[in-house]
Amino acid sequence: MSNSNLFLKSGFLRAPLQNGVGRFVPQLQRIVFKFCKTHGASRGMRDFIEQDLLDFAKQNPNIVVYMKPRRHRSPVIVAEYLNGDRFWMSMHNKTHDEITKWVEVMRTQQGDIAATRLRKLQYTDHPSIQGPWTPFTFKDPELNVASLPDSKYGANDRLPMSATEKLRLMFEQQKLNESDIKTAE
């Protein structure tokens, strides 16, 4: 196991601001498209801007969209979320379809979760002072000292006899018959 997770920020995986409890609040706040107007690596970004950017902005009025042309620089998308996370991704030589998919991923996620070291798998705002529940939480403590199987605790008296048990009884009966024959002689 590597220690690379030591350099990641630590946190909990939880829904931001109780999202989805009352109403859904989209987490993507701002998206910035940085591209070059003439560079060949920005062709996919320029195609996305020409064909799909207006539809994206109309369908998502809660997201602020910026375009930042830069000369002779590689295309980049920067997404900023409500929790303060910034997700930066290079779109160097990506096609129009790949950029469309990445924009959709950025729109639907809640921040840069992949770069977070999880402290626990569960998180709650109101932890219990009684401890975690287990299947034995409300069991009778008398079971701890009982000798099982016991009919008081639901022994398996109602189950039919197993084949092994039948063979054992037949063997014991055969031994008794042999010993009775020897004593009679």
Rank of each mutant, 00 (worst) to 15 (best):
S2T: 15
S4A: 13
S4R: 10
N5Q: 11
L6S: 05
F7T: 05
L8M: 09
S10C: 04
S10L: 05
F12A: 01
L17A: 15
Q18D: 14
Q29I: 03
K34V: 06
K37F: 07
T38I: 09
G44Q: 00
I49Q: 00
E50G: 04
Q51D: 15
Q51G: 01
L53R: 02
L53P: 07
L54E: 15
F56E: 05
F56T: 09
K58R: 15
N62C: 08
I63L: 08
I63W: 03
Y66I: 12
R71T: 12
R73A: 15
R73S: 14
P75A: 02
P75Q: 03
P75F: 03
A79L: 01
G84W: 09
D85R: 04
H96D: 04
D97Q: 11
E98W: 04
I99N: 09
T100E: 10
V105T: 10
I113G: 03
A115I: 01
L121V: 13
H126F: 14
S128D: 12
P132S: 12
T134I: 05
P135N: 03
F136N: 13
T137A: 08
T137V: 08
P141G: 01
A146N: 01
S147R: 05
S147L: 11
Y153R: 01
Y153F: 09
Y153H: 11
G154M: 03
R158G: 15
P160V: 01
M161Q: 05
K175D: 11
E178H: 10
D180Y: 09
I181P: 00
A184R: 12
E185V: 15
E185R: 14
